[in-house]
């Protein structure tokens, strides 16, 4: 089964995944109209900064067993038996933040949401774009990502590709570096700036 695979070394921090995610979870599904919606749709993938301000798309891993699911006081978090996606039922959620205390990745947010009862603050996180996937679409974040940091593919395939990349980069006379030289230069400068 295809899934969203994160390749952190490729994240350029543009946050386009966040925009695409928020739009995908809006009522209208269109950027320009989504901006006018209330509650304003919000992203479920969060681009954070690493130690030298490199981008990092942080999204729910849909862990198994899922600490958030085990910690949920109201039984609002459950796993979809078919897709394996860990989901939050906004009608059952009591906004107690026990899941935030349990999530080792810090990917759960609390706010009003287009799919929650109006005016109610609930826990919100990545739903793997299950609805888009059911329509034959890829998850919105992977569609938006143009640098290959978020891909939608078979895990085996991703692992194979990664192994090959690593093998290429450590073998002598490698034709392609894992990170293009000019980008590596930028990274080096940013690191140097921060280490002053």
């Amino acid at each position: 089964m295809k899934q969203v695979v994160v390749h952190p070394e490729r994240c350029v921090g543009c946050m386009q995944c966040m925009v695409a995610c928020a739009v995908a979870h809006s009522r209208s599904g269109q950027l320009y109209t989504a901006l006018a919606e209330r509650p304003r749709p919000r992203p479920r993938v969060h681009v954070g900064a690493g130690l030298y301000n490199e981008g990092f798309p942080n999204r729910c891993r849909h862990c198994d067993p899922a600490p958030c699911l085990l910690a949920c006081l109201a039984g609002a978090i459950f796993r979809d038996a078919h897709t394996g996606t860990v989901l939050i039922d906004p009608d059952k959620c009591i906004n107690c933040a026990s899941c935030a205390m349990a999530c080792p990745y810090g990917v759960i947010r609390f706010h009003e949401d287009p799919v929650a009862p109006p005016g109610k603050t609930v826990a919100v996180k990545c739903d793997n774009c299950d609805q888009r996937v059911a329509q034959g679409l890829a998850p919105a974040c992977t569609e938006a990502c143009k640098s290959g940091a978020l891909t939608y593919e078979e895990m085996d395939e991703a692992m194979r590709r990664k192994t090959a990349e690593v093998a290429r980069s450590v073998s002598t006379g490698a034709e392609t570096a894992a990170v293009p030289p000019a980008l590596a230069l930028l990274m080096a400068v940013k690191k140097a700036e921060l280490s002053l």
């Binding site: 994240c11 921090g13 981008g55 930028l186």
Partner: peptide
């Protein structure tokens, strides 16, 4: 603002 957009930075 971190991380700043890599497309713009490059």
């Amino acid at each position: 603002q971190q991380p700043q957009c890599g497309y713009c930075e490059t």
